[in-house]
C-alpha cells in the first residue's frame, strides 16, 4: 500500500475514515433489522439509485477541492436527460450521447472560465444554472420523450442484482480519486483549494486547473443525467434539481472540507451510500416521502457540525482522523 500511494494521498484518506465506519455500521444494522432490505431487488434498486449521484458528486468533489462550488450540476443533469430522450440522428442514440458529453463539457468550461476570471463560483454557477435550466425547458417543457432502445438496453444492463451503470460509476469515482491525488493536475488542484494566491505565486497554472476542474464537473454531471435515464426511462427538464444539494451533501459527508484543499474523493462512495441508504430505508418503512427533505437537511447540518466541532483534529487511538484546519475565526464568508 505505502509503496503504491503517495504519503499525501494516504494522509488525505484519513478524514474519510469516520464516514466509512458510520456507513458500514448503518448497512450492517439495516441488514440485521429490515427483512425487505435483504432482498436482491432492493439491493439492485439501491445501487441503481446510487449511480447518478456517484458521478455528479465526483465532479462536485473535484470543484469543492478547489475551494469552489458548482450549483449548476442539477440543471446539467436535467439537460442531459432531456437530450438523451429527444429524438435525434438515426435513432441509435450515438448522437444523443455525443451531445450529452459536449453539453456537459461546454457548460463546465464556461463555469471554469468565469471562475478563473474572478467571478464568485456561487454566482457564476447560479447564473449558468438558470441558463441551462432555461435551455432544458426550451428543448422539452414537460417530462416525456423516448429514449433510443439500444441506448436504454445498455443503461439498464445488470449483472445479477448489480447494475452495470453502478459499476461504471464506482470505477469513475476511483479514477477521479487517483487523478486528483496521484497526478500533477491533482497536486495543483489541492494547492489552488488550499490557497489560491499561494498557488498563483508559486507559478502554478491555477486558471487552467480551475477550468479543467469545472469542465470535469460539467462532464460528470451530464454523464450522471445519462445514467439517470436508465432509471426513469424518459427526459425531465426539472428532475435534476435535487442533485445540486445532494451532491454537495455527499461530498461534505465524505470528509472533503468546504473551504477546499482537504479530503479525498474516495470518501464520496460512503457519503453517497449513506444518503441512498437513508432514502431507501425510509421508503421501505413506508414513511411519507416528504420526510426525506427533513432527514437530508438534518444529516447535512449534523455532519458539518460534527466535522467543525472536531475542529483542528479528531483522534481515535492516537491516529489523527482529521487533518488540522487552521484557525478560521471568520463568522461568515461563503466558500
Amino acid at each position: 500500500m505505502s509503496a503504491v500511494l503517495g504519503a499525501t494521498t494516504r494522509a488525505n484518506l484519513k478524514p474519510t475514515i469516520p464516514i466509512w465506519i458510520v456507513t458500514i455500521l448503518a448497512v450492517v444494522v439495516a441488514f440485521a433489522v429490515s427483512t425487505p432490505f435483504r432482498t436482491g431487488t432492493n439491493a439492485s434498486s439501491l445501487l441503481l439509485g446510487m449511480a447518478p449521484l456517484l458521478l455528479v458528486a465526483a465532479g462536485q468533489g473535484i470543484v469543492i477541492l478547489t475551494g469552489g462550488i458548482d450549483l449548476s450540476v442539477g440543471s446539467v443533469v436535467s439537460l442531459a436527460t432531456v437530450i438523451t430522450a429527444s429524438s435525434l440522428g438515426d435513432g441509435s442514440g450515438t448522437l444523443n450521447v455525443a451531445l450529452v458529453v459536449v453539453a456537459g463539457v461546454v457548460i463546465g468550461t464556461a463555469n471554469g472560465v468565469g471562475v478563473a476570471a474572478g467571478i464568485n463560483p456561487l454566482v457564476m454557477t447560479l447564473a449558468t444554472m438558470g441558463i441551462v435550466k432555461g435551455g432544458a425547458l426550451l428543448i422539452m417543457d414537460s417530462p416525456g420523450g423516448t429514449v433510443p432502445a439500444s441506448l436504454l438496453e445498455g443503461l439498464t444492463w445488470s449483472f445479477g442484482s448489480v447494475p452495470l451503470t453502478f459499476l461504471i460509476s464506482l470505477g469513475v469515482v476511483v479514477v477521479a480519486w487517483l487523478l486528483t491525488s496521484e497526478t500533477r493536475f491533482g497536486h495543483t488542484l489541492y494547492a489552488v483549494g488550499h490557497s489560491g494566491i499561494g498557488a498563483r505565486r508559486a507559478a502554478l497554472r491555477t486558471n487552467r486547473t480551475l477550468i479543467v476542474a469545472y469542465a470535469l464537473s460539467g462532464l460528470l454531471a451530464s454523464l450522471g443525467g445519462l445514467v439517470l435515464v436508465g432509471r426513469v426511462f424518459s427526459g425531465d427538464p426539472l428532475i435534476g434539481d435535487a442533485f445540486s444539494l445532494d451532491s454537495i451533501t455527499a461530498v461534505l459527508l465524505g470528509g472533503i472540507a468546504v473551504v477546499g484543499g482537504r479530503g479525498a474523493l474516495l470518501g464520496i462512495i460512503p457519503g453517497v451510500l449513506l444518503l441512498a441508504l437513508v432514502d431507501n430505508l425510509l421508503n421501505l418503512a413506508g414513511v411519507f416521502s416528504y420526510y426525506q427533505y427533513i432527514t437530508k437537511g438534518m444529516i447535512l447540518i449534523v455532519a458539518l457540525a460534527l466535522y467543525n466541532a472536531a475542529g483542528g483534529e479528531l483522534k481515535i487511538g492516537g491516529v489523527r482522523l482529521l487533518p488540522g484546519r487552521g484557525s478560521k475565526p471568520d463568522a461568515g464568508a461563503p466558500a
Partner: peptide, 21 residues
C-alpha cells in the same frame, strides 16, 4: 452560521430543505 461555524451557503440550504420537508 455564527456559533456552529457552518458555511452560510450550506447552513441555510439545509434549513431551507428542512422547512420544505
Amino acid at each position: 452560521v455564527a456559533k456552529l461555524r457552518i458555511a452560510p451557503l450550506l447552513a441555510t440550504l439545509a434549513v431551507g430543505t428542512i422547512l420544505q420537508g
